[in-house]
Design a protein around this nucleic acid. Sequence first.
DNA 1: GTTTACAATAGATGCGCGAC
DNA 2: GTCGCGCATCTATTGTAAAC
Length: 730
Amino acid sequence: MTSIWNKRTKHCHGFIDKQIKDAITDFFDNEGNYADFDMSCANKIVDHLPHNLSCSSVNWSWFQYLFDSYYEKREKLIVCILISKLIKYDCYTGDYSEIVETFKWMNSGEIKPALFWLLSNSLLPFNLIVIQSDIRTSSNKNQKSISSFKTDSHNLFLSGLLRNFILSGNTSNFVAKEFYANFQASLNGKLITSPNDFNAGTFKHQYFFYKQNFSNSTVITLLKSFYLKLINDGYEILNWQDGIDRNMLQMNSFNSHYENGYLPIPLNPFDSIPESDRWLIIPNGAEKKSTKLNSFVYKPIDFSLVKDSQLKISLKHWFWNSNRSLSSRIDAANIIIKFINFIYDLRYKFNLRQVTSSEFPLDYITVEEIYSYVSFVKERKLYNAYIGVVRRYLIYLQENNLYEVDPAVYKYLVIRGYTHINTAKDIPDEDLIKIEANMKVKSTENDLQALYYILFHIAIATEFRIAQIINLKIDCLVKGAKKDYYLESHSKVSNGEKLKIPITPYTKRYIETAIKFTQEVREKCNDDSIKEHIFIHNYFSQQFKVVTVRTFSDYLKKICREEGITPYSAQNLRDTYMTKSIEYAIKNNMSLIETKILTSHKQVDTTSNHYVADKIKDYLEATHMVIIGNLNIKGTIAAESDFTDGDLVNEECGYCKHESCIKNDILDCLMCSGFIATIDRIPYFEDKISKINNHIELAKLPHEKEQFIAIKRLYLAYLAKLLELKEQVV
DNA sequence: GTTTACAATAGATGCGCGAC
DNA sequence: GTCGCGCATCTATTGTAAAC
């Protein structure tokens, strides 16, 4: 041992440059860290280094030279350890020094194979992306997590893009190293020097490259996320004209649509009918006439399913020129496709024409065919649209001279047995309370569930349809002439016009709360058609979505099942008549939602109680349109008190600690030092404030109005403090 | 003006896929 | 494995205009 020590000391002292000397000292000190650290080999390597080695010559090509100077893997690995020490002691002065700097984050076990991989493949530093990210641990300590990604990128720019991409997403959860390792290959070697070098063509190449070479579907997911990230960063690299765009890319069904050759097609009757058969229809304004559609959700229709080519053309014609709303037009088209194929099979598969020895040519819809079809529909007990839609389609064909139809067919295409049963079912109070309580608990678990909770409240407090609520826009609140508010939204009856619906102040508050709640997500989103909505979330990385009716219904059902009650639907919420008791309970909970929501993003700024206080104040000021400012509160604000109901004063807003009233008549209790307000008084404050609002409205003289506003300001100041205190206590 | 008959749209849900 | 979501296809509700 002694001889080795001496030898090592001699080597270390031989170097003139201080940093290099330190690095080499550490190199030998780390002996124990590597099972395969061969001291004689290490000595040999260091022996070959010139003593006057200076940092200015420590660059990547020198590393490569050093690495290539040895032939055995064992030796090369030890060279890598030496290199890692030189990096650690800041000896590196070559190109890409910022990247090399990141290599320091790796521990000794990771860096050795990483350097070996780089140098044995004659790669450059940017081929290794090292990421340092914060991870939240249960103990809430800020820990750094280090991960490294190998990439075959040909240049620094592309590596930088990939690095940013990794940093931006929660990609650590679904690591697919193949994605980065083959990125350049997937581009067929194309050099990337700007984000704008990516386009529909590169995407296609990459998509099918990854699809062919890797069974792991996460690779495709990452590819989609990568393009979405570029788009989210403002690069308009994909346009529908090229067969793919952002909205398509975000759809759950993207893969199958893309692989099956669906093309995005804006719905516009003034354009000529598209030649292709598989359309992904861009609503292009049609969404304004329906609550079932959104501008960013494209609807598929597959005309290639139509077996008869002439009828296919006529169906496209009908589809393109129909006035039906898009979603029901697609429904109808799917029925017509079934109809056409039924007729086709009759003609060619079952040879009906021969059986009936009909003399009509094959481009003529006959009574026999329709009779068979109607029998089929009745036998299968298919719903009425199977008859009505077909009739209207045939009329259209005739009117536009697209196909010959025997006029006698219509007397068979009739519907019988309309039953109109009203199944409206309201939810009893006890069940409603159970649902409310369950949703309240879950609303704290994640953002989506908090949105469902607000949706639930609006649904029972208003007459709106669920789709209408979900698709509300942030600018939907419109102030009326007085203090009243209107909600502007599209409705199926308005035929594209916006409707104004009067709402209560409570509904207004819910909507404002929801807008504030989603503001954080909205600021991150740069997709205008999404961010204009109120109920948005960011569940998937790089994807911003509007809540759907589908998930809300499912969630409501799930809650009902958990509570062991009838699985109510969103429609039932609308049918539910709010009794006074439930209304009271719900209004009380409202302030709870508001404060909870306003403060639910506390983790952003946990330490600052100021933050919470300011937010509450901002909110109250915005809602009540009164500036609270720094009003001095004379009374006491407390979480709870020992006073009894007998001590309640001022319409139960608080307690009085004096034996008898000491204030004069002009003063309000709130201006007295003997006044004590506690958290459980919050609802009374809210009641009182709404009463003052009435006074303000009724006041005729300006100075009366001002006086009431001053009083309101006082109550709001108390309310703000109480809400703040409540937040600390809870 | 009300009823009736149906058209058109909204809502519900089984199924399957993608994201994580 | 769970959750979110889209599609297809069904049911429910609402709109509307002719018939009474």
